[in-house]
Simulated assay, not measured.
Amino acid sequence: MNNSLLLILTRNPELGKCKTRLAAKVGDKAALNIYKFLLDHTVSFTKDLDVEKWVYYSESIWENDIWDQNSYQKKLQLGANLGERMLNTFQEGFNSGFEKIIIIGSDMYHLSQANLEEAFIQLEKHDYVVGPAEDGGYYLLGMKSLKKEVFHNKSWGSDTVLSDTLKDLESGSIFMLPVKNDVDYYEDIKDIAAFQPFLKPIKE
């Protein structure tokens, strides 16, 4: 898949600066540890994916961290809001000659390498691939040509993002992946076994 590119948006894992909605319930330290766990998990299901991979940092590029420079090209997010930042990453990818580009975040516990492989396969047959999130947003977006409208006039973080995005894409063929949940709130993880070590002090 040498014409395929995976974009991964991450936040620099710093105390008090990541997973703030989760931190409101579990505290800054637990939220940071949970986010680091999710970053490690994202590496685990992307590192062997046979596509080009670019990691976009929110604040600054960290040289010696979990993202192996032999597998991931490191870049910095640019833009005033999430829409602008995503648009700029897609623009850079298409300008570099990639024909199939997929973007994900780094807070998905239920995403797998097989899911990503399926998304790239479906992108060969469809114009767009969308992974709908339970909260009314999306956890994955793939396209074969840049549709700028997708990144404008959205209330990012609200439950209308998915429906508004699908309206922008309705002129093309869309493949919908299964609905999944990303990790934003305590309620998203409170019943998942893998997160219990982080939550144990809170429950005691």
Rank of each mutant, 00 (worst) to 15 (best):
residue 89 T to M: 13
residue 89 T to I: 01
residue 89 T to V: 06
residue 90 F to P: 00
residue 90 F to I: 04
residue 90 F to S: 01
residue 90 F to K: 05
residue 92 E to N: 12
residue 92 E to P: 00
residue 92 E to Y: 05
residue 93 G to I: 06
residue 93 G to K: 01
residue 95 N to G: 07
residue 95 N to M: 13
residue 96 S to Q: 11
residue 96 S to C: 04
residue 97 G to W: 01
residue 99 E to R: 15
residue 100 K to V: 05
residue 102 I to V: 11
residue 102 I to A: 02
residue 102 I to Q: 02
residue 102 I to M: 05
residue 103 I to D: 10
residue 103 I to R: 05
residue 104 I to V: 11
residue 105 G to H: 03
residue 106 S to W: 09
residue 107 D to L: 10
residue 108 M to D: 07
residue 111 L to T: 08
residue 111 L to M: 13
residue 112 S to N: 13
residue 113 Q to W: 00
residue 114 A to V: 09
residue 115 N to F: 10
residue 115 N to R: 09
residue 115 N to V: 02
residue 115 N to P: 06
residue 116 L to G: 05
residue 117 E to V: 11
residue 117 E to W: 05
residue 118 E to S: 08
residue 119 A to N: 09
residue 119 A to H: 01
residue 119 A to G: 07
residue 120 F to K: 06
residue 120 F to Y: 05
residue 121 I to S: 15
residue 125 K to A: 14
residue 126 H to M: 09
residue 126 H to Q: 14
residue 127 D to E: 12
residue 128 Y to T: 08
residue 128 Y to W: 11
residue 129 V to R: 00
residue 132 P to E: 03
residue 132 P to C: 10
residue 133 A to L: 12
residue 133 A to F: 09
residue 133 A to K: 04
residue 133 A to C: 03
residue 134 E to F: 13
residue 135 D to W: 04
residue 136 G to P: 05
residue 137 G to V: 03
residue 139 Y to L: 03
residue 140 L to C: 11
residue 140 L to N: 03
residue 141 L to P: 03
residue 142 G to M: 03
residue 143 M to E: 14
residue 144 K to S: 12
residue 145 S to P: 02
residue 147 K to D: 14
residue 147 K to C: 11
residue 148 K to L: 08
residue 148 K to F: 01
residue 149 E to H: 10
residue 149 E to I: 05
residue 150 V to I: 11
residue 150 V to W: 00
residue 150 V to E: 00
residue 151 F to D: 00
residue 152 H to V: 08
residue 152 H to K: 14
residue 153 N to I: 02
residue 153 N to D: 14
residue 153 N to G: 00
residue 154 K to L: 06
residue 154 K to H: 07
residue 155 S to T: 15
residue 155 S to R: 14
residue 157 G to Y: 12
residue 158 S to R: 06
residue 159 D to K: 10
residue 160 T to R: 09
residue 161 V to I: 02
residue 161 V to K: 00
residue 163 S to R: 10
residue 163 S to V: 11
residue 164 D to Y: 03
residue 164 D to K: 10
residue 165 T to L: 09
residue 166 L to Q: 01
residue 166 L to T: 08
residue 169 L to Q: 08
residue 170 E to G: 06
residue 171 S to C: 04
residue 172 G to N: 12
residue 172 G to E: 14
residue 173 S to C: 13
residue 173 S to A: 12
residue 173 S to L: 09
residue 174 I to K: 14
residue 175 F to V: 09
residue 176 M to G: 04
residue 177 L to S: 09
residue 178 P to S: 02
residue 180 K to H: 12
residue 181 N to R: 14
residue 181 N to S: 13
residue 181 N to V: 04
residue 182 D to L: 05
residue 182 D to H: 15
residue 182 D to Q: 10
residue 183 V to E: 01
residue 185 Y to S: 13
residue 185 Y to W: 13
residue 185 Y to Q: 13
residue 186 Y to W: 07
residue 187 E to A: 12
residue 189 I to H: 02
residue 190 K to Y: 12
residue 191 D to I: 08
residue 191 D to F: 10
residue 191 D to L: 12
residue 193 A to D: 15
residue 193 A to E: 15
